[in-house]
Simulated assay, not measured.
Amino acid sequence: MDTNYDLEETSNLLICTACGTQLPTTDRIALATCFICDDPRQYTPPSGQAFTTLAEIRTSHKNEFHPYRPGHQSASDDNVMISITTAPKFAIGQRAILIITPKGNVLWDCLTLLDEDTVKEIKELGGLSAIVISHPHYYSTHVEWANAFDCPVYLAFEDKQWIARTSERQVFLKDVEYDIPEVGGPNKTVKAIKLGGHFPGSLVLLHEDKLLIADTLMTTPSGMANWEVDALGKPRVRPKRANTFSFMWSIPNMIPLGVDDIVRMWDILKEHDFTSTHGAFLGQDIEDGDIKARVLQSMQIQVKAMGYGQHLFLHLF
C-alpha cells in the first residue's frame, strides 16, 4: 500500500501514453499492454502501445491553471473553481477541477502530471481536503496526488477492478449519493452522485448549483453552440431538436448507452437541481437556468434516435 509521498520515489513507474494511467512497475519488458486501453471503451493508438514515466513527462510538460467564475459570481465570492490542464496535451487531455470552498478544497478528476510547481500552487490555494474521480479513464496518478496532499481519494466501488495502484487513501463509494465529509458540516456543499453508464460507477459531482459531469454526460458541439442570435443578429430560441449532451458507453469508439441506462441516469439526476454543467475538457462550461431541462431533452433525443420512438420516457417534461 502507498501512503507516503516522495516526488522521486515513484517517478519511474510506467505510465500509459494513451490513457495516462500509472502502473505499479518499472519493467518495460514485463509490461506489454495497458489493461485499461485493452477494454473496448478505450483504445490503443495506431502507433501502438507505449509507456512513459513521470520523470519523463516532467521534462516536457507543465500544468496550467485556468480560473473559472460563473457569470453571477463576483470576484470576492468564497467559492471558486479552477480548471487544471496539462500542456502540451498528454494522453486523453481531460481537465481536473479544483473546487475552493471555505471548508476546504476538493479536486474533481485527476491529471497524470504531478510536479513540484503543481504541488506548490495548490498548497498556496489551500491544499486538498479530498479528491473525487469520475471514472477509471481519469484515475491517472491519483495515488501520487492523494499522498502529496495527504487526503482521501473517492472512487466508485463498482469500478474497483480498474485500480492499477492500491492505497489506503482510496475510499470506495457504495451509495448512490455521498456528501464529501471533509468539506461537509451543516451546509454540505459537495456531493458525489453515482449515475453509472459510461462505467458502472461513473460519477458526477454537485457543488451548490454546479454539476461537474466529466464525460458521464458528454457535452456536445451543439450544446456549446451560440443559439442566442441568428445570422442577422436577431434573437432566436434554441431549437428543441438540438441536443446538449450525449450518453456514451464508449466516447472514442462512439458506442452509445442503451435506453435502460439513460432512463436510470435520469431517475437519479432528476432529484437534484443545478444551473450549470462543467464537462471533461477545458471550456465545456454551460450556464443556463434551463440546463436540467436540456439534459432531459438530450436524453429523449438520443432515445428516439436509437429507435425507441414509442418509449414512455419521451413523454416526460
Rank of each mutant, 00 (worst) to 15 (best):
N253A: 11
R238I: 08
M254R: 15
R241A: 14
M254C: 14
W249A: 06
S246F: 11
S250M: 07
P256N: 02
F245N: 09
K240H: 08
D260F: 06
V263A: 07
D260R: 01
A242E: 13
S246D: 14
P252D: 15
P239G: 00
R264I: 08
V263I: 13
S250E: 10
T244C: 01
P235Y: 00
N243Q: 09
S250D: 13
R241W: 11
P235C: 03
M248K: 10
P256K: 08
N243P: 00
T244A: 08
M248R: 04
V237I: 04
V237E: 03
V237Q: 01
I255E: 12
V263C: 10
L257T: 08
S246T: 15
T244S: 14
N253R: 15
D261E: 15
S250W: 09
F247G: 02
T244G: 00
K240E: 09
W249V: 01
P235M: 04
G258S: 10
P235D: 05
R241P: 00
I262L: 04
V263Y: 11
M254E: 15
R238P: 05
K240N: 04
P239L: 02
F247S: 00
N243T: 06
D260H: 07
I251F: 13
R238F: 00
M254W: 12
V263M: 04
R238S: 05
P235E: 07
M254V: 15
M248G: 03
L257F: 06
R238L: 13
T244V: 12
R241K: 11
R238V: 03
K240I: 00
P239D: 13
T244Q: 12
F245T: 03
F247L: 01
K240D: 12
R264Q: 07
S246L: 03
W249L: 07
I262S: 06
N243K: 14
G258M: 06
F247M: 07
I251E: 14
S246G: 05
M248I: 00
P239S: 11
S246M: 14
I251D: 05
W249G: 08
T244D: 06
K240P: 00
S246A: 13
V263S: 00
V259L: 06
R236F: 00
S250F: 13
I262K: 02
R241G: 11
P256H: 10
A242G: 02
K240R: 06
S250Q: 08
S250G: 09
P239V: 00
M254F: 14
V237T: 10
W249Y: 10
I255Y: 05
I255D: 10
P256T: 05
I251T: 08
V259Y: 11
P235W: 06
P256S: 03
T244P: 02
N253P: 09
F245D: 10
A242W: 15
I262A: 11
P235T: 13
R264F: 05
F247E: 02
P239K: 13
P235G: 06
W249C: 02
N243W: 14
